[in-house]
Design a protein around this nucleic acid. Sequence first.
DNA 1: CGATCGTTTGACAAGGGTCAAAATGCGTGG
DNA 2: CCACGCATTTTGACCCTTGTCAAACGATCG
Lengths: 263, 263
Amino acid sequence: MIKRMKSLPLCHPQWSDPMTILKAPLAGGSPLLTRLSRLTRLDDMAVEALQTAARDVRRSPPRRELISEGEPIRERYALLAGWACRQRILSDGRRQILSFLLPGDLIGVCQHSNPLAATTIIAISELVTCPAPVADPGSALAEAYARSAALEERYMLAHITRLGRFDARERLADWLLETQQRLATTGLSVADQFPLPLTQEMLADALGLTSVHVNRTLQAMRRDGLLILRQGMAFLPDRDQLEKLVEYKPARVSAGGENYATP
Amino acid sequence: MIKRMKSLPLCHPQWSDPMTILKAPLAGGSPLLTRLSRLTRLDDMAVEALQTAARDVRRSPPRRELISEGEPIRERYALLAGWACRQRILSDGRRQILSFLLPGDLIGVCQHSNPLAATTIIAISELVTCPAPVADPGSALAEAYARSAALEERYMLAHITRLGRFDARERLADWLLETQQRLATTGLSVADQFPLPLTQEMLADALGLTSVHVNRTLQAMRRDGLLILRQGMAFLPDRDQLEKLVEYKPARVSAGGENYATP
DNA sequence: CGATCGTTTGACAAGGGTCAAAATGCGTGG
DNA sequence: CCACGCATTTTGACCCTTGTCAAACGATCG
């Protein structure tokens, strides 16, 4: 296997404009609150804490390294707007993107003391973050965090299956469905349409392919009416077909209630 | 991609004998206690709880499904002896093994209420399990569980990188190193030698390859003096070489102390 | 001693990688 | 407003790693 060693592209050009990023997610409350309240019933205290936290926003430019692999984790953020990713880079330049972080996701929240970062996290587009409120053991917020962590585990397991047993087209289909669904949870995707601020090379690094092959596969999918890409937006015209292709099932984390109404 | 549909082999023949499985791990205390006490300093209460739990052992035959994907998780076990795996099977028969569970590992321990199993878990060899003691929030045991969960996340992330960016030889090398190290933590590997109760097909299903290709790659590695396999035991004669091949770094989860002495 | 399961081999096919160059799009500075 | 520079997408030709299919071989077990 020949190795490559070159600069790593990060952000889709269309998405350098923070305005574009901000307007959708912040309308109608923080995406963090939205997402967590779909995972469990939040009480007033939790909602209060989340709303307070969401007032203390910070911005990070694209390419900024939020957390570095192996370093102690100091702060816990929530992502309010923009995309980030967890990645690992090998010494010969190969890169694996382990997961994408979307608005509403938590960063650096974990249960044990003196945690070290498992992976580097970098901003893909311009980000808006806020501190993640601390959750007392037993609180509704703690339950929400735990379910959020469980969901993250599902995504990792799904990713392992994608990389281990899916071919290129299946990987893309499955990833698109999952991503669309995650975005829909915070209102960032409507009618199977959603922003996709990634280069094909990033997609390749996430899906264990080369950018050339991602390109060809995307073209084939467009030809087959499975996908439309325009100006950094994706649209899935034939969701059924895609779902059939990969036996897609949305991730569920706990029995009984999920999908609680936003308070 | 042509699909396959056939019976799924589970256990290496050499390992049907429970005696073989039992003698090593149970010598010198439960592997669960050993492993957790290397993750954090356990207090007397935790040690007590773990020792009590370890008296209530249960056995499961190979191929038994311990937990089924999507079902509510009722019990929390610790694995005391034998190997199990988490797996996902696609409707066309393709299988992905998501991770292996080794002696000392926890099964079904999670933080939120009404959890649903993320994956099916099945016994590879005959198993010995015990109930996992409940951890009060803030206790040393809770800290140990949290660190254990964090470690599990590392393994998943490493697996994603393996599948996404490593070729066949690298995947095997990396997986062998990781597995050897995990076993060494509970004293199940000494001098780079360890039991490997897997068929090449299981290895293939874990590493995203076919059994034919695993076979050929293993042969090449043996020729190159990287690996010796005999009767279900593996030996790594040239650890340095293997580590260089994949830039292997053991997983670390928290700053300051790990590797606490067993009390 | 078949039956079964796992390993090994061979011949061949194909999905995906590599390399290189052209085409496209976009932001910047003149 | 245009031209230039840079990043990204697209294309083509070629090759290699890995998958597929099939059969032989070896062990283990009733």
